[in-house]
């Protein structure tokens, strides 16, 4: 509107000057042409300006669009990353589950194998009992853990003796009592009591000394109520030494009786 007013004013002033100055005055056609050219010029300028405005608007819009796209891209990337992490977590969880399952399966298998192995070892023992003319139901076998759980003293299985002697030192009373208790509550377990001696003198006569030692342990266990079928007293004389050498120390270690349980051998 303001522009229109200014334009009108210009036109009015021009008209006035044309009227007042006759001598230098231009013809009306010239004036009209000038006026048209001017108007044309103004129109062009206006158009250019408008064009510039449009261009600027376009740039702004493009920038806006780019920013928007950028933001969208970023958002998508973030979303993808989150998705990836979630997938990875799912994968790991699955692996964990599989691993767990595998472990359980393995444990089951191991347990199964252990049972089979135990059954196999017990069958061998049963065959041995039959071959030895023993009661084949005496197939009870033990593990170290089992003995420890029942009574830690059961892991002590040796009784030591003085030279050429077979009397049991009273200090072994609790040990022998513990073994007696274990045998009474585990009636399928049969033990060997293995007598040993040091390597001085006749090997054959030493067998009979070792026998005296294992017989003494056997008698003590019988007196505590262990059924006789669960104990067999044997002698290895000086044939299975645990210590070598002709020293009192080595001899003392070999003068002993061992309580030997049938142990599972894994």
């Amino acid at each position: 509107m303001k522009r229109l007013f200014v334009l009108s004013l210009v036109i009015l002033l021009t008209a006035c000057s044309s009227i007042s100055g006759d001598k230098g005055a231009l013809s009306s056609e010239e004036l009209a042409a000038q006026e048209a050219a001017r108007q044309e010029e103004m129109r062009r300028q206006e158009e250019a300006r408008q064009e510039e405005l449009r261009r600027q608007e376009e740039v702004r819009r493009q920038e806006e669009e780019a920013r928007r796209q950028e933001a969208a891209k970023l958002e998508e990337e973030q979303w993808r990353e989150a998705e990836r992490i979630a997938a990875e977590e799912r994968r790991q969880e699955q692996m964990r589950l599989q691993e767990e399952e595998r472990r359980q399966e393995e444990a089951r298998l191991q347990e199964e194998l252990r049972r089979q192995e135990e059954a196999r070892q017990m069958e061998i023992l049963r065959q041995q009992r039959l071959e030895d003319g023993d009661d084949p139901s005496l197939v009870g076998m033990v593990t170290k853990e089992q003995l420890r759980e029942a009574d830690p003293i059961l892991l002590e299985q040796s009784v030591f003796f003085d030279f050429d002697r077979y009397e049991i030192d009273p200090k072994y009373a609790s040990l022998i009592a513990a073994h007696a208790r274990f045998l009474i509550v585990n009636p399928t377990v049969k033990i060997f009591v293995e007598g040993n001696c040091d390597d001085r003198g006749s090997p054959e006569y030493n067998i009979s000394l070792g026998q005296r030692r294992s017989d003494a342990i056997q008698r003590a266990l019988l007196a505590l109520g262990v059924p006789s079928r669960q104990i067999e007293a044997v002698s290895y004389g000086a044939e299975r030494p645990v210590a070598y050498g002709a020293t009192e120390e080595a001899w003392a270690q070999n003068r002993r009786a061992d309580i030997a349980y049938p142990m599972f051998d894994y």
Binding site: E204, I207, S208, Q211, R212, D215, S235
Partner: peptide, 25 residues
């Protein structure tokens, strides 16, 4: 128990042995 100390009879038909099956040797 313990089976030990074999000795051949002169005719080779018997062995004298030491057994602990009835206790002792």
């Amino acid at each position: 128990g313990t089976n030990s100390a074999p000795a051949w009879s002169p005719d080779g038909k018997k062995l004298a042995v030491t057994l602990s099956k009835d206790g002792g040797s």
